[in-house]
């Protein structure tokens, strides 16, 4: 039912992956969050390429919730605009649960075109997964790591 929006593939560079996962560990015991900046395709939706992964402050400073500092979002929006890109998604960590959107994540999802990246730190190795969320629907996206 949700497969029709299980695209695009999220294409992270190795350094973007390291930025995201490193930021999630740095913010322990709290949840970490950040924004993805990248291009839109001709359909007005993200292509899956990421030009920048921008760590943001979690103003909740909480182990169970996050809110992206709006000042960081303003900065991301300006940086995106300067590149001719857009904010195309958000990441956050789940410190003790699966890398799967919680009911709160679904309820508070902002944009059906965005890619929602969740990094689980529950186990010894981090697990990064990406999703799109439309209404109550959740579709997992493929994630590739590229050199760079």
């Amino acid at each position: 039912m949700t497969s029709e929006f299980a695209q695009p593939t999220l294409r992270l560079t190795e350094s973007q992956y390291a930025t995201i996962v490193g930021h999630c560990y740095d913010d322990l015991p709290d949840e970490a969050c950040g924004l993805l900046v990248g291009p839109l395709g001709g359909n007005g939706e993200p292509t899956g390429a990421v030009s920048e992964a921008r760590p943001c402050r979690n103003v909740d400073a909480s182990a169970v919730t996050y809110t992206v500092d709006p000042r960081d979002m303003l900065g991301a929006m300006r940086a995106a605009e300067a590149r001719g890109d857009e904010i195309i998604g958000v990441w956050h960590s789940h410190t003790h649960t699966d890398a799967y959107p919680s009911p709160t994540d679904v309820r508070q999802s902002v944009d059906p075109a965005w890619m929602y990246v969740i990094v689980s730190l529950r186990d010894q190795a981090p697990v990064l997964r990406a999703y799109r969320i439309r209404g109550e629907g959740i579709a997992e996206l493929a994630v590739t790591l590229e050199r760079g």
Binding site: E31, C33, L35, D60, S62, V64, T65, Y66, T67, V68, P70, M73, L74, M77, V90, H92, H94, H96, T97, P101, S102, T104, D105, Q108, S109, V110, D111
Partner: peptide, 11 residues
């Protein structure tokens, strides 16, 4: 004026 959606979630 910049309009920004609140971006939030949690377990």
């Amino acid at each position: 004026l910049s309009i920004l959606p609140a971006v939030a979630g949690g377990v």
